[in-house]
Amino acid sequence: MKILLIGEYSRLHNSLKEGLEALKHDVKIIGTGDSFKQFPVDYSTFPRFITSTRLLLFFNKVFFKIFRTDLQTAEKGIRFWFYLPKLKNYDIVQLINSNAVETYPFFSKYLLKKIFKNNKKSFLLVCGEDTPIIDFLLKNEMKYSILTPLLENEKLKSSYSFSLKYTQKNYRDLYDFINSNVCQTIVSDLDYKIPLPQCKLIPNPVNTDKIAFEPLIILEKVIIFLGINESSFTKKGTIYFEKALEIINQKYTDKVEIIISKSLPYQKYVQLYNSAHIILDQVYGYDQGYNALEAMSKGKVVFTGAEKEFMDYYNLTEKVCINALPDVDYLVTELSFLIENPEEIITIGKRARDFIEKEHHYIQIAQQYLNTWNEN
């Protein structure tokens, strides 16, 4: 089959592509590569003209202040439009988000009308923030979520402009338009299955052939890594990790090494955390996001979402990662236990890899997508 994957935010579509290609399908990805992360795509819509010089970036800021129009957002749509002749006659089209084209909603609608018309079957994947997810989280019915900081402090609204845009009429209309034109909506983990129980969950694919398992060896120090994405600092609860690390650093000065990075391209991010034993991912999740899964595949101990819902869904009785909570004392206690019991780090790391191979193997997951697409 010919398959077109629109958008890439986490390497999910790249891993899915690798699984589908292993099953002898022809796959292309179109997208921006997600800003600084620079994920590979076949057709790039990255706004390289507007970002090519500081002068143009400055001009864009001025233009936005006067006309409330972001030329980078417009350029993404224009680049997508130029690719339209190549985006025809696919058997399957999958959008990674209702805003997968990453341009203005009215322009996305125009472009996606062409996509839906010129290809056979289309699907929507919800694997991050989107209109029904934000609607659900704003009800504040869960014990915590990525919106918890905002719900507790309205002054943080500016930190949530990306999230809240999905509640605006133009983005809501875009979601409804896509929802009425796709065969099915798929979700990637429990953080989206809980708000959308009617949708089919297909776990994130992880290429375990590319990501080698590295048995953890702990010599003098336990190495802890915190990778900060400045745009999602508040939503991921990174402040709790920072505060916990301050205490851990004082408590175990001679036993730990702490590495902190900020908004690195994907490849540099991975290279930097390779030497770590423990990865601090996020505190507001119920299941693991993509970065956490890749780290677990390498055999790292990851502090991330691993709530009871996750343990029950996969019938787990032993930890494959550490359930992170928005509680500094709790995080310090969990980190302290691992530092004082390094053999437990090694054991959890092995379990993590086994879990990924069993539940997230990229070829098995690609087959699940094929089965779902073919059912419609």
Rank of each mutant, 00 (worst) to 15 (best):
E8L: 04
H13M: 14
L20V: 09
A22N: 15
V27Y: 04
I29Y: 07
G33A: 12
D34A: 15
S44L: 07
P47E: 07
F49E: 03
T51I: 02
T53K: 01
L55A: 14
L56A: 00
F58D: 07
N60H: 04
K61L: 10
R68H: 13
Q72T: 06
N97L: 10
N97T: 11
N97Y: 08
I115A: 02
K121Y: 12
S122A: 14
F123M: 05
L125H: 11
C127I: 11
G128H: 12
I133G: 05
L137W: 15
L137G: 04
L138H: 04
N140R: 06
E141T: 15
E141N: 15
Y144M: 08
T148P: 00
P149W: 02
E152T: 12
N153L: 01
K157M: 08
S159V: 06
K169I: 13
D173K: 10
D176N: 11
F177D: 02
F177Q: 08
F177W: 04
N179C: 07
V182Y: 00
C183W: 04
L190R: 03
L196H: 01
P197G: 10
Q198C: 03
I202C: 13
D209N: 14
K221W: 00
F225L: 09
I228L: 08
S231T: 15
T234M: 07
G237V: 08
T238R: 05
F241P: 07
I248Y: 05
D254F: 02
I259M: 07
I260G: 05
K262Q: 12
L264N: 04
H277A: 00
I279Y: 01
Q282S: 11
Q282G: 06
M296R: 03
K300T: 03
F303H: 00
T304L: 12
E307Y: 14
E307Q: 14
T317F: 12
D329S: 14
D329W: 04
L331I: 14
T333Y: 12
T333I: 13
S336P: 04
F337E: 12
E340W: 00
N341G: 01
E344W: 04
T347A: 13
T347F: 07
K350G: 00
D354R: 07
N371G: 02
T372E: 15
